[in-house]
Amino acid sequence: MIEGFRLYARLMSAQIRSQMQYKMSFIMEFASTFMGMILEFASVVVLFIHMPALDGWTLAEVAFLYGSAEFAMALSQVITSGFDVFPETVRLGKFDSILIRPRNAMFQVFASELAIRRFGRAAQGLFVLGIAIWWMDVDWGVAEWSMLAVMILGGVVFFAGLFIIGATFSFWTVEGLEAMNILTYGGSTMVAYPMSIYAEWMRNVFIFIIPLAFVNYYPSLFLLNKVDPFGLPGFMPFLSLPLCSLVLLASLVFWHFGIKRYQSTGH
């Protein structure tokens, strides 16, 4: 296990070193994504010129939702970069190179790529999140910080599960599953605002079927001492990490199923 982490660290540092050959390009992409995405948040700020609060959520509170959703999604995307490029890995036959190595295939996919250029978006999320934490009316004690940490972890795990599921489809189709963008990019956009603004059917889908609301909405209700508008039990915020982990678990099972198919159909 420890040896595995060490190997992962080695492979990642190799990734970073090889990308540092294009340092300027990395800096440019980082800076441009960071600033470009800040403009997206600026549009949220502009909306607040026309209202005092969004369904009872102040700008700082919405910034908290927005920042945490962006940060978790983008960070997850960086960590699962290998799955992001996985359709290409399969198409170019590079997955064969993985299967001839004496290591777990999924581990190797994780370690095969680290798109550090995507840090720009994560940094933007963290930046907005940081401002929100500083600005929000919350007494930050151990319980609050722990809840925040668990919430971000849950978000990363949730989106990682989705990215892996999307990538696993490339065992069947050439392109992977583009419709997955609805849940990944769409999902992080959805939870950038309070769930209470959406139609009831959308809420139900994303609370009870796909646990998107647990990525940051329920933990935020806890942190901000808000009453659950849907009247669900008070332990909901604490289900965040377990439910998000279930998504990751589902993705692992699905992956296992997909790789079997690869080995029996060939590419």
């Binding site: 369904d55 583009e178 603004i197 959308m202």
Partner: peptide
């Protein structure tokens, strides 16, 4: 298939943005 996925994604984002505007108008009282 990319076009179909694109339409679905565009529409989903449309839903999200629509409900955001509904909430904004609601909160603005205008």
């Amino acid at each position: 298939s990319a076009t179909l996925a694109g339409i679905a994604t565009n529409f989903f984002f449309g839903l999200l943005r629509t409900y955001l505007f509904i909430a904004v108008f609601d909160a603005s009282g205008q």
